[in-house]
Simulated assay, not measured.
Amino acid sequence: MPVPLSREKIAATAIRLADTHGLDGLSLRKIAKELGVGPMRLYDYVINKSELLDLMVDVVYSRIAEVGERSGWRDTVLAIAHATRAAALEHEWFSDVLGGRPHLGPHALAVGEATAAALNAAPGVVDIDDLQRAVGTLNAVIIGSVRREVTERRTARSTGTDEAAFQASLGPYLTRMLTTGRYPTVARLVIDGAHLEAEETFHHNLTTILDGITRRRST
């Protein structure tokens, strides 16, 4: 009896493989093997790997969309942003596709609509130009933050060292460079700066951006 398939089942298997091996280790042949079917059967459900990736991405967006609309525009934006970060940390490959080609699946569009509608209600957004800038700035902060955090996690895994060990390995070089006196502000950051907790920093940066959006332009 043929193994029952569906787009949802294929996407779930692909996500599981990508979580383990990354997008570079993902192929329709591997997915077919995992499902116990011939590769050609998958083409009845997805045209190619590109369509499969779109499907996977929209599954992740469906979970982000579950946060729903909150009581105020600011709480809605924060909930969506934190849900996006959580999704990228759970599915690291998702951070690789953020900011790339547009995500136009139904759930991705729903998240985009909820975000834009919330920002449109911010006191400082008075026209379409304000809204475009607000959406662009928010997306840049979210994408930049999650990509950096995921990259740091990957680096720690690949080198087998934690952040403290990594810093210690660079200590002699940094000491030589910073004692030249040419980089006083960088020295202050390295010597006096505390290790910032990632989630708290992410939230702080978001609220700073939203504070700026709420300020009306002077006439």
Rank of each mutant, 00 (worst) to 15 (best):
T208A: 09
I128K: 05
T161C: 14
R29Y: 13
P2E: 06
N48Q: 03
M56Y: 00
D162G: 07
Y173N: 03
W93E: 09
P102L: 09
L109R: 15
R29L: 02
L55M: 10
N48W: 06
A122Q: 12
R101E: 12
A117S: 10
T115G: 08
L17S: 04
L98F: 13
I47A: 08
R153T: 08
A198W: 14
D96Y: 14
Y45M: 01
S6N: 14
R153Y: 04
L17H: 05
T207K: 10
R176P: 01
A32Y: 01
I142M: 04
L78R: 13
T159C: 11
Y43D: 10
E34N: 10
N205E: 13
S71A: 10
D19R: 11
T159H: 04
K30T: 09
G72Y: 02
K49Q: 07
R188H: 15
A14S: 15
P172Y: 11
T151I: 05
R29A: 10
L131T: 01
V97A: 09
K9R: 12
G68R: 14
V125N: 01
N48Y: 05
E69F: 02
V186I: 10
A194V: 03
L174C: 04
V125Q: 01
P39H: 15
M1K: 06
S71G: 05
K49T: 13
V57S: 00
I31G: 01
R7Y: 09
A114Y: 09
L138T: 11
L78Y: 02
D192S: 10
H107M: 01
A114K: 15
A12N: 03
I47T: 14
G160D: 03
E199I: 10
H91C: 05
V150D: 03
H203S: 12
R215H: 13
D19C: 07
V60Y: 05
L206K: 12
T20K: 08
T159N: 11
L26F: 09
T151V: 11
A11K: 05
L206G: 04
I142D: 11
E51Y: 05
V60H: 02
G22I: 04
L210N: 03
P4Y: 02
L138Q: 04
F202R: 11
D54A: 09
R7E: 00
A194Y: 08
R85N: 06
G193S: 07
N139F: 02
I143H: 01
G193L: 03
T115V: 04
H103K: 05
S218F: 12
P123N: 13
I64A: 12
A187S: 07
V60E: 15
